[in-house]
Nucleic acid binder design. Structure first.
Lengths: 199, 199
DNA sequence: CTTCATGGAAACAGATCGGTGTAATTAATG
DNA sequence: CATTAATTACACCGATCTGTTTCCATGAAG
């Protein structure tokens, strides 16, 4: 069991990767610390050396999922709608199990748990990201529209969890387009044969 | 402890009521059968007499939450939008803990669990209810629009779970109105002073 | 009164959980 | 080599979980 390992990954990283895999796939409450330690090929003692409690590990798991939205130079409208395309890919690859933040809040229940705050942070970050793009697009009431886009994303996630259908992302995307149109965000200039971008 | 009880409620009903209260408030996995039995003022022996396993109790809890949408004679558009007003009331009363069906799917994880099927049934029922109303309104593509409204409802539920804000229901409602407008569902005739219906 | 079904109280079984204590082993560093 | 820190293996704790079992109280029907 001591095969010459990827020396690359430190124990803490392996533990976090194992927690991410198991917590997301099977649920936080369904996975014990022993299982995480085993998956990380690490003794339970070392796990508790890096993360003093399961709650700490949960918090680390959620914060590690924080992928900061990379600033892109793509057109703002495309960036917004591209979000839904990413959702569709997530739904389709079979391993989708819902939004990890919402799942954590649901599974843990306690609103005072650190996970609740982390989840709120993440959602708000994405909402503000939407809002910044909408402001750049001179949309009407960017704040309200950002909230609505966020609701669409959340709804697509939840719907795809109970239903399996990846097409739900396209439905949400279409709804987002209607909202953008209604907010005065004009479609990209498709006129001058620049339709070259194809798909 | 044998005070002259409401003879009205049969043991099975009391157990189900207790399960509903505890499962929804604290989560399915967080509540043991002992707690349900205690809340129902019933011995664990009787609980297992009526529901042979916790899974059976969970399934009964979810199916009991099936409130069949009562047919209403209110204008169809009002019926649809009224859904979001009900959401706002749910969010505001403090005891909101997310959609019980989504929660069950999340907590149990297993897609083969009976809860997954029940959740799917419920969501589809509401979607079809939307669709029927939209057909009556001669909306463009009622099926697709029904899915989008369903996504909005789901998104409002999930968002209100992590954020606490009841106003999210109003945001979702406003988005629904935009979608309805875009689908050619005209607003109710507010012209002829029939605005009497007030609020 | 006898019979039988229902249900209460409580102990129990077997498993799993989060978390700790400890002694032995390994790996890096001087 | 010697020292030290990290890590392992593994037993163990108390709590909790689902589910079962045993014994006893009740109460209605024959």
């Amino acid at each position: 069991m001591k095969r010459a390992f990827h020396k690359t990954a430190t124990p803490a990283e392996r533990i976090l990767a194992a927690a991410d895999k198991l917590f997301y796939r099977q649920g936080i409450r369904a996975v014990g610390v022993d299982a995480v330690a085993a998956e990380a090929a690490v003794s339970k003692r070392t796990l508790y050396n890096y993360y003093p409690s399961k709650d700490d590990l949960i918090a680390a798991y959620l914060t590690a999922r924080f992928r900061h939205l990379a600033p892109s130079d793509a057109p703002a409208r495309e960036q917004i709608l591209g979000n839904f395309d990413r959702l569709e890919r997530m739904f389709a690859d079979g391993s989708f199990r819902g939004c990890p933040y919402v799942n954590a809040v649901t599974e843990l229940g306690d609103p005072k748990h650190a996970a609740a705050g982390i989840a709120l942070q993440f959602k708000e970050q994405r909402r503000l990201w939407f809002r910044a793009l909408l402001e750049r697009l001179h949309a009407r009431d960017p704040d309200a529209l950002a909230t609505q886009l966020q609701i669409l994303v959340e709804g697509a996630l939840a719907s795809a969890l109970v239903r399996g259908d990846p097409a739900l992302a396209r439905s949400a995307r279409a709804a987002a387009e209607v909202l953008l149109d209604a907010a005065g965000v004009r479609r990209p200039a498709r006129s001058v044969r620049q339709t070259r971008r194809a798909r």
